[in-house]
């Protein structure tokens, strides 16, 4: 009796310590970003980051909005492609594929999830960009960025959806079959709604990765600071901006790069907050 109480207490302490440490790391990163960007936040007004004529930090203009739009375009474009593809792959594996091909297909997707981002970037730079270039120069473009990002977040969505579909209780499926629902109406009416939470979590994770992905996008998206007018225009994302300029930045330039990090962090927080709110709302 004493032993089990002791084990419980110990476990609770260990778990609490883990939770506090991870929360603390997050808070420290936020504090660090704030303290590093503080020097410019003091003498530049926030409006300058939105209304300056361009991004030329060495010439004193700090407009971050083209990078904000670039980040959003690239991530949204990738989600638009990867969400239907990922969910469709998962439905295929769970309900339509033969056990052998389902296993093969799932292993392939898991392999895709394990490829490091710099490899995607390298492939994009040497294969995808020249292909897009034949369509419409210069090749390094929003389109190339979206395609590479799609490949990177597809496995996250597919695997999370797969796990959520597998976890749908068997009796739901059997009840649906007993009610005479055909395959597709059963998937649409019973399985997908029951797996909803898991699927939304997968999409949020994927969106976070798309927003923050750096190397692959940096290599294929062209990195020109501008609002894209078409899919073939080059863009620069907030994350790529930091990676490109950080190594040589000093003083104010360095601090405004931390501001773009802060901006990216806020963007991700807004997005995950929004997703949580949407998830809750439709259950009510």
């Amino acid at each position: 009796m004493f032993r089990s109480v002791f084990t419980d207490t110990l476990l609770r302490w260990v778990l609490q310590a883990g939770a506090v440490v991870s929360a603390l790391v997050m808070a420290m990163i936020m504090l660090f970003l704030l303290s590093e960007s503080w020097p410019v936040l003091q003498h530049l007004s926030l409006a300058q980051f939105l209304t300056d004529s361009s991004w030329h930090p060495l010439e004193g203009s700090y407009n971050l909005t083209p990078m904000l739009s670039g980040t959003l375009y690239a991530s949204m474009g990738a989600l638009l492609l990867a969400v239907p593809l990922g969910i469709a792959s998962a439905i295929f594996i769970v309900y339509y594929a033969s056990p052998r091909s389902a296993l093969l297909y799932r292993r392939l997707i898991e392999l895709l999830a394990g490829i490091p981002s710099v490899v995607f970037g390298f492939w994009g730079l040497t294969t995808l960009v020249p292909l897009v270039n034949q369509l419409h120069p210069p090749g390094a473009s929003l389109l190339a960025g979206i395609l590479v990002l799609t490949l990177m977040i597809l496995p996250t969505i597919a695997l999370m959806t797969y796990a959520a579909l597998i976890a749908v209780p068997d009796e739901y499926i059997r009840s649906a079959a007993a009610l005479g629902l055909s395959g597709w109406s059963m998937i649409r009416g019973v399985a997908l709604p029951a797996a909803r939470t898991g699927i939304v979590a997968g999409i949020v994770l994927a969106a976070g990765r798309a927003l923050g992905e750096t190397m692959a996008v940096l290599m294929v998206a062209g990195n020109v600071v501008q609002h894209a007018d078409s899919l073939f225009d080059p863009i620069r994302t907030l994350a790529a901006n930091i990676a490109l300029e950080m190594a040589y930045a000093m003083g104010d330039h360095r601090a405004v790069l931390f501001v773009s990090g802060l901006m990216l962090m806020l963007l991700v927080m807004t997005l995950s907050g929004l997703a949580g709110w949407l998830g809750k709302k439709s259950y009510a």
């Binding site: 361009s54 030329h56 060495l58 010439e59 203009s61 730079l125 040497t126 960009v129 020249p130 270039n133 120069p137 210069p138 090749g139 390094a140 940096l218 290599m219 062209g222 990195n223 020109v224 600071v225 080059p234 620069r236 990676a243 490109l244 190594a247």
Partner: peptide, 24 residues
């Protein structure tokens, strides 16, 4: 001046620049 330049692609380090040009 850097603001006078109208680039189509902006790169970071030398190897990335060379690969970009080798592909275009």
């Amino acid at each position: 001046k850097n603001s006078e330049i109208k680039p189509h692609i902006v790169i970071g380090d030398n190897p990335q620049g060379i690969k970009t040009i080798a592909g275009n």
